[in-house]
């Protein structure tokens, strides 16, 4: 377990010198922990709400993020997460953090959410973003839930400006494929599909689902964006290094991997768009 585990002290309670030092620091910066009427102790138990909350919360307002936020393979904000206490998403541990608000994913932690609500903890659930409108909507919702609407509006405006700059010129749309473990691909109506489209690439499998390796080889797209591989190895990921795929890609400029920037609907996905655009330009 890393540092920052265990229960973070609640401001105003006597929890030894560390809490006192924190209190002094908070007073010194003369910044309120949270706007009036907004929840003062927010806990996030979902990788994507972790990142939105870390971007939007007032100092001290976000008490804990999920342990996944510290995994560099999934989280685009590892450094920020290291500054926060982490939880493993268990209802009991989250309840002990004494939150005023819990941010959760809609699909992954139903039982935990149900239990927390029965214990009287307010929970806001967020569906994973499937397109850029969802990204904007989720930013606005997290902002509203934290009482940080201004910060959310600024973040959305920055997102739109950067996206517009990346999208700038339209030209030839080279064919590209997204290829993940177990031969899965992401269709046009997925977040990854929208990232691909924003970079000016055309998805060869707009319906998504399984893309048999044979079809990928026959179609021979100009760019194949493969899922990043995880430690420990698995049979599922072996297809990403299949000799036939390696032969297809041999001698081509390397395509970026679908890494942590692709996972969540946050402004970090623009970094993925940027790398894809650079890769597209090397194709011209």
């Amino acid at each position: 377990m890393g540092e920052g585990e265990g229960r973070p002290p609640r401001p105003g309670r006597r929890c030894g010198w560390r809490a006192a030092a924190g209190l002094v620091a908070a007073l010194a910066s003369a910044q309120p922990a949270a706007p009036a009427g907004a929840p003062g102790r927010v806990v996030s138990i979902n990788l994507c709400t972790d990142q939105l909350a870390m971007m939007l919360a007032a100092p001290g307002q976000l008490v804990s993020v999920s342990s996944m936020a510290r995994d560099p393979r999934m989280s685009a904000m590892v450094a920020e997460a290291a500054e926060h206490h982490v939880n493993h998403g268990g209802a009991e541990a989250v309840f002990r953090l004494d939150p005023d608000l819990v941010l959760a994913g809609r699909h992954t932690t139903r039982a935990t959410v149900r239990l927390l609500r029965r214990l009287g903890v307010p929970v806001e659930e967020f569906a994973p973003a499937r397109d850029f409108d969802d990204v904007r909507a989720n930013i606005a919702r997290v902002g509203a839930a934290l009482g940080r609407e201004g910060a959310a509006e600024a973040l959305v405006a920055e997102f739109d400006a950067r996206l517009a700059a990346l999208r700038a010129e339209a030209g030839r749309a080279p064919e590209a494929a997204l290829y993940y473990a177990n031969s899965f691909t992401a269709g046009a109506e997925s977040l990854a599909g929208h990232i691909l489209a924003a970079a000016g690439l055309s998805n060869i499998a707009p319906q998504g689902g399984v893309l048999p390796l044979e079809r990928l080889i026959m179609r021979a797209p100009e760019l194949v964006v493969r899922g990043a591989r995880y430690p420990g190895g698995s049979r599922a990921e072996e297809v990403l290094a299949h000799p036939a795929l390696r032969a297809l890609l041999a001698g081509r400029p390397a395509a970026p991997l679908a890494d942590a920037d692709w996972v969540c609907g946050t402004p970090h996905l623009l970094r993925a768009v940027g790398r894809l655009r650079d890769a597209r330009e090397t194709l011209e």
């Binding site: 031969s183 995880y230 698995s234 000799p243 036939a244």
Partner: peptide, 25 residues
Amino acid sequence: LSPNPFAATEMMFWLMGSLADRSMT
């Protein structure tokens, strides 16, 4: 216990077997 996110679904393969996308290696 594996750190790999796909490891949990690997059980299916080891119990049932598959020849899909195997290579010359």
